[in-house]
Design a protein around this nucleic acid. Structure first.
Length: 573
DNA sequence: GCTCTGTCTA
């Protein structure tokens, strides 16, 4: 027996496995349970294994044990078609073979990869029926599936009902909340676990930092960074990468760069994160400089590095550098993907080179995605190109896109040309199609507390004062010569109401709150989930001038730094 | 004896 075990351990290729299998068959040992399971596992999960061969081996076993099944389910769950693991799990549970906690764990792992919530629910009910609910590892896997598939309520419920938790349970929920648009709760949970005496590890802080990045929560982010230093978690490269990202997304590219410089070991992700950080802040040259430096440091730029550098060119208006970069990809052995194409189309589009942008779209080797057509539509709007806008819109409709922004852009193009009939047609189409409107919201941190505003929000404890401030802003900006561009508003309402609809956008509410709740001269920073609206961009520029404040707005794409009536994006976004 | 949690992407 021992010699068989050692033979199996020496296997390092599929042909070894096949030789062993022949040996087992000829000596009649394929029936011996422990060795054949080992062989099966080797086939199913080892790096040199082969899934189809594993299932082939499995079919030659007359009475497969639970462990035999587990080997296959585990292998399938990690393979290219996780659905098959779920199917095998179903077959297994219908047969007489006993399903154990590991089987459920592997099947749930497959669900996590497929984001298969309803399948996970079925396995969940079996887990309860089989009495595995006390298994902390299994319940953590379950929690993670719910969180990843967007059902945070169920994830929380599983967490709450667990009698025994380990650090991974906390981590799974914190990461789930952070990634699932409930970042404030992720931070609360992170602080809560420390109160309960838990010691966050590398993985915990990754989740917490990701939440801080999304919220632009600098104060919390600094606390997490302090914890990382105290616990020496900064030895971990991934943790440092997340710290860089956090500082960059909280508006402090220089702090991010300090962390970057102090790292003794850097991964390619470190470089990519820092390049993206400069891009986000419109520091095109710094991003390109870093991109050049990485080669010298022995790190070859990958597809993400190129995307970051291209993105930096976009935000800094470095059109020729960007095009050159894009063209140089092939020489580095990299094939541009749809995002690289999207980026270069954006680059040309912003520069008004719509024809070239369109030629690239027509000649690209893969199908353009929605985002790409939206990019072209946005550029068409900026340059008032009706034909191009119509082409892009038609493509978007064909692709089943139903997003409000696409219709608004097209309508704006028509409105700019005073083609009111076409404007009406688009509005009617919007009504008929029940378009999706992602609700816009903005965050602002004041004294370490995050305040969230949605459009027309009246739920803030201070809303009356905020609205009074907005009235004052309206008055003072008008006196300064501002005229509302109501063409950003689509509803069939009167001029004054249109102005009001613009006036209470979430980013304006957040800025107004910043003005009344921070000392004069203090910079104000706002985070918005969508792109900043054109009217808000105009108004905030004026606010920065007449109130003499630096105002920073991070929108979906980049940072806008407003000072003295100007924006760092040079109105080019 | 074997599971669970994870940074960067127009």
């Amino acid at each position: 027996m021992a010699y068989l075990e050692s033979l199996i351990q020496k296997c390092n290729s599929l042909s070894h496995i096949k030789q062993l299998q022949v040996h087992f068959i000829t000596t009649g040992q394929l029936l011996l349970s422990p060795s054949r399971t080992k062989l099966l596992e080797l086939c199913a999960v080892s790096p040199f294994g082969d899934l189809s061969y594993a299932t082939h081996l499995f079919r030659h076993i007359q009475n497969p044990s639970t462990n035999d099944w587990n080997a296959v389910v585990r292998g399938l769950a990690a393979g290219p078609e996780p659905t098959r693991a779920i199917l095998w799990y179903g077959t297994m549970s219908r047969q007489s073979c006993r399903v154990d906690a590991l089987t459920c764990s592997f099947a749930l792992k497959a669900c996590a990869r497929m984001l298969a919530r309803s399948e996970a629910m079925q396995i969940h009910s079996q887990v309860v029926r089989f009495g595995f609910y006390a298994d902390a590892l299994l319940m953590t896997t379950l929690l993670d599936v719910y969180a990843k598939s967007g059902d945070l309520d169920s994830a929380e419920k599983v967490f709450d009902e667990m009698d025994v938790r380990d650090i991974a349970s906390w981590n799974a929920l914190i990461a789930g909340l952070a990634q699932g648009s409930r970042p404030s709760e992720a931070i609360e949970l992170f602080n809560g676990m420390r109160v309960e005496g838990w010691k966050p590890n590398e993985i915990t802080v990754l989740g917490a930092l990701s939440a801080c990045s999304q919220l632009g929560a600098l104060k919390e982010g600094e606390k997490v960074h302090g914890y990382i230093m105290g616990e020496k978690l900064d030895m971990n490269v991934q943790v440092c990468n997340a710290v860089i990202d956090m500082y960059a997304k909280c508006g402090f590219a220089n702090k991010a760069y300090t962390v970057f410089k102090n790292m003794c070991r850097r991964s390619i992700v470190t470089w990519n994160t820092m390049i993206m950080a400069f891009a986000l802040h419109g520091d095109g040259y710094k991003a390109l400089e870093l991109f050049e430096q990485m080669g010298g440091a022995g790190v070859h730029p990958d597809a993400v590095s190129y995307l970051g550098a291209l993105c930096a060119c976009n935000h800094a208006g470095l059109v020729d550098d960007g095009v050159r970069l894009f063209d140089s990809m092939a020489g580095s052995g990299l094939t541009p993907n749809v995002k690289h194409y999207g980026s270069v189309v954006d680059l040309l589009g912003r520069a008004g080179r719509l024809k070239e942008a369109y030629d690239i779209v027509s000649s690209m080797p893969m199908t353009p995605d929605e985002v790409l057509w939206q990019t072209l539509l946005g550029a068409s709007k900026t340059y008032g190109n009706v034909e191009m806008a119509e082409i892009a819109s038609r493509k978007l409709v064909e692709m089943g896109s139903n997003s409000c922004g696409d219709f608004v852009l097209l309508s704006n193009v028509y409105a700019a040309h005073e083609r009111w009939k076409d404007v009406d047609r688009v509005r009617t189409a919007m009504k008929d199609r029940d378009v999706k409107k992602i609700p816009g919201f903005s965050y602002i941190e004041v004294d370490g507390v995050i305040h969230k505003f949605v459009n027309g929000d009246q739920s803030h404890f201070n809303w009356r004062e905020i609205y009074a401030k907005l009235d004052e802003i309206k008055f003072r900006t008008k006196a300064y010569g501002y005229v509302a561009e109501t063409n950003f508003v689509l509803h069939d309402i009167g001029q004054e109401e249109k102005e009001n609809a613009l006036c209470y956008h979430s980013e304006k509410l957040a800025v107004a709150f910043g003005l009344i709740s921070t000392a004069e001269g203090t910079p104000i920073q706002v985070i918005k989930n969508l792109r900043i609206c054109g009217d808000c961009h105009v108004v905030i520029k004026i606010i920065s001038k007449i109130y003499n404040r630096e105002i920073v707005v991070r929108d979906r794409a980049r940072f806008h730094r407003f000072t003295e009536g100007l924006c760092s994006c040079k109105d080019y976004w």
